[in-house]
Design a protein around this nucleic acid. Structure first.
Length: 519
RNA sequence: GCCCCCAUCGUCUAGUGGCCCAGGACGUCGGGUUCUCAGUCCGAAAACCGGGGUUCGACUCCCCGUGGGGGUACCA
């Protein structure tokens, strides 16, 4: 049997981190078995502009390297891949269900149903529709219609027995039929509802494994009923644990950003991202600039594989030690059996650590390629950069080492090399320049600098140590004010690297300018 | 209310009856190194939800609680 899995997003305009995890698992499973991964758009009764709401989702998946074999943009043998274009199949399924007696026309008004529902709840009993407005024959239907009632089609669920399913993640699960509602599958206007559409499409697209979030577990019996009634074979099911909020077990939601920001780790990730976005004129889309949404990471400069790798670990593990996987390794080692069944909370700190791991492993050239666009967008280098700018950037990347965690971090480490005058951080000035000794150290070092040859880290270090020794001061007493004088701030790459990259002229002029800020 | 699912350090997890007075990772804390930051090295604290069974023996199996989550729509 060919393995065919699918990811079926609604066109909402953004790609949710939990959705990515579901897509990733489906993709991994299909790739592992040499099968197909299909993208299907669940746009049943959607009124939005599908194209613009879909593009961010496709874009996000592409960026993450999750490629699909069939889908809305690439087509495929089972096209179309939009539910809104497959309604003929749904209508036919409804007719079949009606004909076989697995569904019926119902003319109850919503308020009448509510009444029954409330009564059942008050009695502490499960709600079971009385079917008093059900029309099992044409005459009855005509009579209700004559009363001005609108008819929908409902499933005629069994009221005894149970459904037993083997879920790849949860094992055996059982549902009593009598607890299942007579769900509506078709509205009075003829449009069909999600569960019906979903089942028909999964069958028509020959989906072999339905891998989806746990929130659908409770929906499975009604879907299985539809499938069985239509004479389909059931697909294999695997219900993934939910991706939960940081430090909680509640489903992660895009709408609760304000609440998540109370979590310190989450807030730090957000603020760090905002600082980067602000400098490249991004983050304006406040609605999608949110660590729950993939766009955020892309804009800030995370590595797509770091996100995939982190997400793979959310609910799945290979063994008790391995945490980092190449794409090939993950495809080879992934398995449904090793998916955990408990919800997993999204931990921005851990994502950060995985990102750190992969970013650190990149070469200077690779980092250069990722980071250059940020400098261009921030207006710090020309597009394309001059040879001199490119050289500076490379040296900064080299000198910055592990300090660069995401591509956007280059802005904070390279900016003072690329502008005429550094922006002076007032706190750093107050602490390191406005001191009794800063002026004398700066002057002494400047005097010595004229003769340093070559103007490279080793010679500069030697000169600084000699200056310190002559003044009877510690190295740190000179390093700090000099750093602030030439970079404007108190953190950055090693000072000798900074000096060498800036070059003699700029170092001297900045130090001289800084004299005016000394105490 | 009713139905379903779940339950190991703060977090992600390993553990399928003895290898576990529970292992790894992130984070946290303490210390070393360093010009700052980042890093790195060394070290530490930190968990089997509770109660009953089953068994020679339970983190592991069963039951009951408790807690958490999901579903219960003419949403997806």
């Amino acid at each position: 049997m060919t393995v065919r899995t699918r990811f079926a997003p609604s066109p909402t305009g953004y790609l949710h981190i939990g959705g990515v995890r579901t897509a990733l698992f489906n993709w991994l499973f299909a790739r592992q078995h040499g099968g197909q991964f299909i993208l299907r758009i669940d746009d049943t009764d959607s009124e939005r502009n599908i194209e613009s709401a879909l593009e961010p989702i496709l874009d996000g998946l592409r960026w993450l390297g999750i490629d699909w074999d069939e889908g809305p943009d690439v087509g495929g043998p089972y096209a179309p891949y939009y539910q809104s274009q497959r309604s003929a199949g749904y209508a036919a399924a409804v007719e079949q269900l009606l004909a076989s007696g697995h569904a019926y026309r119902d003319f109850a008004r919503p308020d009448e149903l509510d009444e029954e529902r409330k009564a059942a709840q008050a009695a502490g009993k499960p709600f079971l529709y009385s079917r008093r407005f059900a029309a099992f024959d044409e005459a009855t239907a005509q009579r209700f219609a004559a009363e001005g009632r609108a008819g929908v089609v409902r499933l005629k669920m069994p009221r005894e027995g149970s459904l037993v399913l083997e879920d790849a993640v949860r094992g055996r699960v059982e549902f009593a039929w009598e607890r299942e509602q007579d769900h509506v599958i078709q509205r009075a206007d003829g449009s069909c509802l999600y569960h019906l559409a979903n089942v028909v499409d999964d069958h028509d697209l020959a989906i072999s494994h339905v891998i989806r979030a746990e929130e659908h577990l409770s929906n499975t019996p009604r879907q299985a009923f539809i499938a069985l009634s239509l004479g389909y074979d059931l697909p294999a099911y695997a219900h993934l644990p939910l991706v939960a909020e940081p430090g909680s077990k509640t489903k992660l939601s895009k709408r609760k950003l304000a609440q998540y920001l109370k979590n310190q780790d989450f807030r730090r990730v957000m603020e760090h991202g905002q600082q980067i976005a602000a400098r490249i004129g991004g983050g304006g889309e406040a609605d999608t600039f949110n660590p729950v949404i993939v766009d955020f990471y892309r804009e800030v400069g995370y590595l797509p594989w770091a996100i995939d790798n982190y997400l793979a670990l959310l609910g799945w593990s290979y063994d008790d030690k391995t945490e980092f996987f190449s794409r090939g390794e993950l495809i080879e080692r992934f398995s449904l059996e090793r998916i955990n069944s408990a919800p997993a909370s999204f931990d921005p700190k851990k994502l950060w650590a995985v990102q750190d791991h992969y970013m650190t492993a990149l070469s200077v050239d690779e980092k250069f390629g990722l980071m250059l666009p940020y400098l261009v967008k921030a207006g710090l280098v020309a597009d394309p950069p001059t040879a001199e700018q490119a050289e500076i950037v490379r040296r900064v990347i080299e000198a910055s080492g592990d300090r660069l965690k995401v591509a956007g971090d280059i802005l904070a480490y390279a900016d003072f090399f690329l502008v005429d005058e550094p922006v002076m951080d007032p706190d750093a000035v107050a602490k390191r320049l406005a001191t009794p000794t800063a002026r004398q150290h700066l002057e002494a070092f400047a005097a010595r600098l004229a003769a340093v040859e070559p103007f490279e880290p080793a010679a500069l270090e030697e000169a600084l140590k000699a200056t310190a020794e002559a003044a009877g001061a510690k190295v740190g007493d000179l390093v700090h004010p000099i750093r602030v004088a030439v970079t404007g701030r108190s953190v950055g790459p090693g000072l000798y690297d900074c000096l060498a990259i800036l070059g003699r002229d700029r170092v001297l002029s900045r130090m001289s300018a800084a004299l005016g800020l000394c105490g």
